[in-house]
Structure formats: structure tokens, C-alpha cells
């Protein structure tokens, strides 16, 4: 493999200033002070891009779409300069058996070195028979690929805890990565629930790894505490505002951990309560069953 062209790295159209700005945002999400921005920059700019294999299972592609929205510098910069997105069905040029071959060989060549991102729940009923890719069950693909990873990022509530397809009566036996693969899985898993989660938190996990060589501290539900350690309500700008607090309209902000009110979505444009809608608790396990009816006070 050709050595990573460090000199070519910054000839690509994005300026050092833009990239530093991005690193500053990531540092903010991680709760680090601004001086860490340049350190994240250094971490991203060094060495071959870490391989990322992104698996799509029982999902709606909303988490992919969320990460596609990452900005400053943006998704193209992420996949050209930061990571090597070696498998991703929604975006790959190739099709059919070729992509399955790419998946198998990338997982083997980078064994113990790649990040495996899982989007979607894994159907486990009937031996995994409810979801197939390239003639194989999603369950068998997960069983083969996930254990070879350095770490697994379960993006979204479905990959973390089963999400929508696992809602009662869970007709397909859908489960999150850790539940579906069980004790046999020894690779660390970071859950990034949300429906979908904020892409800043996704990039934050990778930045944290590149910066410190470790995965972020996790809570009891396997979520990074930097993003999910405080309740939505405790960060909500409307919590003291009687005319705008939505608690009586079913808001689940007091029982849901996430940083939506501080990071916001889509270049900090808004978040659900700013749009006048109650929090639906989408980063908690089994929220489709435990948080419904959505419009009634919990």
C-alpha cells in the first residue's frame, strides 16, 4: 500500500482554517477546551486514514443521512481526509458480489484495526431470516465482520437497542448489536442512540479515539457520557419558560439523556423543543414502547 501522502493531504481544497474550525466543534462536543482543537487536527492528519466498514441492517438509512449532513468541513472531507469508508452500500460505486468481496477482504486485511459502524437492528428471529444481503443473513454478516473490528460504533437507536423494528411485538426478533451478538463479542461497542443521532457525536467518538487512543467513557447503557451524560431537560433553554416548557404536553426531556439542546442539529439551526415539539426520548432503550403515548405526560 502506498504510504499516506502527507503533503497531498492539504492540497485538497479545504483550508487548514476550515479544518481547525471543525476540530474545535468536535472538541466542544467532547467537553475539551479549545486548545484541544489543534491536537484533534494533528490526530486526523497523521498516517493512513482509519478504515471504516459501515454495515446496513434493519434500518431506514436515516443515520447515514444524518452523517451525510456533517459540516465544517463536511462529509466529503470526512471520507477523503479523515477516514477510509471502505464499505457503505448507500454510497459505493460498485454493486453485487464485488461489494461483498470488498467487505470480506477489507475486514480481513484490517483485522483488529478497522472501525465497524452498524446502522440498523439485527433481525434474530428464525435464525436471522428476516434480513438478507448478497444471499446471507444480516445476523451471519454481523457475526463474521463485527468480531474482527477494533471497535464497533452502533449508530442510532436500532443498532444500539433494537429501535423501531424491536418495538412490541418485535415481529422479527430485532436486537441491537450487543444483544444480537451476545457474550461471544469481545470487541468494545459504543452506542450512539438517537433517531437519528447527532453526527457531531459520531465524529466526536472517532476524534476521541484518534486523539487519546481510547474509546470515550460510557454510561450504563453503553453511551458516551460526553454526549448522553446529562438529561435533555437540564440543558433545555425553555425549562424555566412557562409558556414554552413542554412537560405537560408529553416532553420526555427529564428522562432522556442527550446533548440536543446544546449541540443542536444541522449547523446548530434548531432542535425539537425549539420547533415546539416535545422530546420523544429517542436516545433511550426501547423508547418506542416506554415513551409512548408520546403526547402524554410521563
Amino acid at each position: 500500500m502506498i504510504d499516506h501522502e502527507k503533503e497531498g493531504k492539504r492540497q485538497d481544497g479545504i483550508s487548514r482554517r476550515q479544518f481547525l474550525k471543525f476540530c474545535g466543534i468536535v472538541a466542544g462536543a467532547l467537553g475539551l477546551d479549545a486548545t484541544f482543537g489543534p491536537k484533534i487536527f494533528e490526530a486526523f492528519a497523521a498516517g493512513p486514514r482509519p478504515s471504516v466498514l459501515w454495515l446496513h441492517f434493519a434500518e431506514c438509512t436515516g443515520c447515514t443521512e444524518a452523517v451525510l449532513r456533517t459540516s465544517s468541513p463536511g462529509f466529503a472531507d470526512l471520507i477523503f481526509d479523515t477516514i477510509s469508508l471502505d464499505y457503505h452500500e448507500t454510497l459505493m460505486a460498485a454493486a453485487g458480489d464485488t461489494v461483498e468481496q470488498i467487505l470480506a477482504s477489507a475486514a480481513e486485511q484490517n483485522k483488529g484495526q478497522f472501525f465497524c459502524v452498524v446502522e440498523g437492528a439485527i433481525p434474530t428471529a428464525a435464525g436471522g431470516a428476516y434480513g438478507w444481503i448478497g444471499g446471507r443473513t444480516m445476523l451471519s454478516i454481523a457475526q463474521e465482520i463485527c468480531p474482527k473490528a477494533k471497535a464497533i460504533i452502533a449508530i442510532g437507536n436500532c443498532a444500539s437497542y433494537g429501535g423501531l423494528p424491536a418495538a412490541a411485538p418485535n415481529p422479527t426478533g430485532a436486537a441491537g448489536v450487543e444483544d444480537a451478538l451476545g457474550a461471544a463479542l469481545t470487541v468494545p461497542v459504543v452506542n450512539l442512540p438517537g433517531c437519528p443521532p447527532n453526527p457531531v457525536n459520531f465524529v466526536g467518538v472517532i476524534a476521541n479515539y484518534l486523539l487519546q487512543g481510547t474509546l470515550p467513557a460510557l454510561d450504563a447503557d453503553g453511551r458516551p457520557t460526553f454526549a448522553y451524560g446529562k438529561t435533555v431537560h437540564s440543558q433545555c433553554p425553555f425549562r424555566e419558560n412557562e409558556s414554552r416548557c413542554l412537560e405537560d404536553f408529553g416532553c420526555k426531556g427529564k428522562i432522556c439523556g442527550n446533548n440536543c439542546p446544546t449541540i443542536k442539529f444541522n449547523d446548530a439551526t434548531s432542535f425539537p423543543m425549539q420547533a415546539g415539539h416535545p422530546c420523544i426520548g429517542c436516545s433511550e432503550p426501547n423508547f418506542w414502547d416506554t415513551m409512548t403515548p408520546f403526547y402524554q405526560k410521563p
Partner: peptide, 8 residues
């Protein structure tokens, strides 16, 4: 409020 999956 957000995209994907608007909430308004």
C-alpha cells in the same frame, strides 16, 4: 427542528 426525521 432537525433533519433527518423532522419533529414539528
Amino acid at each position: 427542528g432537525k433533519n433527518p426525521h423532522v419533529q414539528s
